[in-house]
């Protein structure tokens, strides 16, 4: 009897261990490993089916004029992420169609789009203006994505079709950096603006464009929406700027261009200057300077420490006052 009890206990422990092992394993698979058995596939399938329901219900078809795209509702008050090229310009009428075929009205807000130094920017924001209780999806974190990680795409390929709910695709991340996610979740026209989810059902990207190959499906990383939220949500509000273009210095923010008539020129900044301090904050690179300017308000007056004429000693930096511009 004791033996049996011990045996049962042993089996139970074994089962528990196996269960734990499996849970850890499935997280490993979602994080980028390949499944190895039908049991793994069934566990993946269960998860995909679980996150699919909310993913589909939060995905909307978007119509702006004659243009059709997709989007995803991210807040109870009706903010909808989409691609920049779906937005067009601010304050246009938008018709949203939900998975069940019901519709709501809204407007376009801001977009960040265009090409700059080979990088394509394509984020856009919409808002549902009708009253309603919207199903939303949660924003994830796109900074920690890795090649091989599993993901799920929804959207309206070829535009909204009555009787067809948002279309699900499952794939893996092939490239991920701060500007771009590429996956093998196949996309086509009409998917633009639709969401890419991780296996927790959180949004990690927004569909943007495709290449000729079936594994060239590009998404805007969701962190770009977070970072530019103010600009997207308030397209008419003036944005802070200096009027300079940065170089590649490793000791601060060096200036490759100072635009004529800009706040930077008025403050006396010159091409070749290296900004090493902004209101007491050390500037290690141009990226940091850009971040601090984005956080400032037009007409703020800031103090800069600048190395000029090849000077490298921070003690010999000159001090300038600069009034942040607005555009």
């Amino acid at each position: 009897m004791l033996f049996v009890r011990r045996f049962v206990l042993f089996v139970l422990l074994l089962l528990l261990a196996a269960g734990r092992g499996q849970a850890a394993e499935i997280e490993q698979i979602f994080a980028g490993a390949a499944p190895e058995s039908v049991a793994d596939l069934k566990t993946m399938q269960k998860r995909v089916q679980r996150i699919t329901k909310n993913a589909i219900e939060a995905t909307v078809a978007v119509q702006v004029g004659n243009a059709h795209g997709s989007g995803v509702v991210v807040s109870k008050d009706g903010y909808v992420l989409t691609a920049g090229h779906v937005v067009g310009r601010p304050n246009l009428d938008v018709l949203f169609t939900f998975a069940d075929g019901s519709t709501a009205r809204g407007i376009t807000l801001g977009r960040i789009s265009g090409q700059d130094l080979g990088v394509i920017r394509d984020s856009g924001l919409l808002k549902i203006t009708d009253k309603g209780d919207w199903v939303t999806a949660e924003l994830g974190d796109s900074s920690k994505l890795r090649p091989g990680q599993w993901c799920l795409a929804t959207g309206h390929p070829n535009g909204y079709m009555s009787g067809r709910r948002p279309v699900v695709r499952v794939g893996r991340i092939l490239v991920a950096n701060s500007m771009l996610i590429a996956t093998d979740c196949t996309l086509v026209g009409g998917d633009s603006g639709g969401p890419l989810f991780d296996m927790d059902g959180k949004i990690i990207g927004i569909h943007s464009r495709i290449g000729e190959e079936l594994n060239q499906n590009m998404h805007v990383p969701v962190n770009r929406f977070r970072r530019n939220w103010e600009q997207l949500a308030h397209p008419n509000r003036k944005r802070p700027f200096l009027g300079v273009r940065g170089g590649l210095s490793k000791i601060g923010a060096d200036l490759a261009e100072v635009h004529e008539g800009s706040p930077a020129e008025r403050a006396g900044l010159q091409v070749g200057d290296i900004i090493i301090e902004f209101n007491g904050v050390t500037i290690p690179s141009f990226g940091k300077l850009a971040e601090l300017v984005r956080g400032a308000k037009p007409n703020d007056v800031v103090t800069l420490h600048v190395l000029r004429g090849g000077e490298t000693d921070p003690a010999k930096a000159i001090e300038l006052q600069l009034k942040i511009g607005g555009k």
């Binding site: 390949a34 499944p35 893996r172 092939l174 093998d184």
Partner: peptide
């Protein structure tokens, strides 16, 4: 590396 990370890679198909 990229091919090895695709959904349709042989390593994934083998699980089926």
């Amino acid at each position: 590396q990229k091919n090895a990370h695709e959904r349709n890679h042989a390593s994934v198909k083998a699980a089926f």
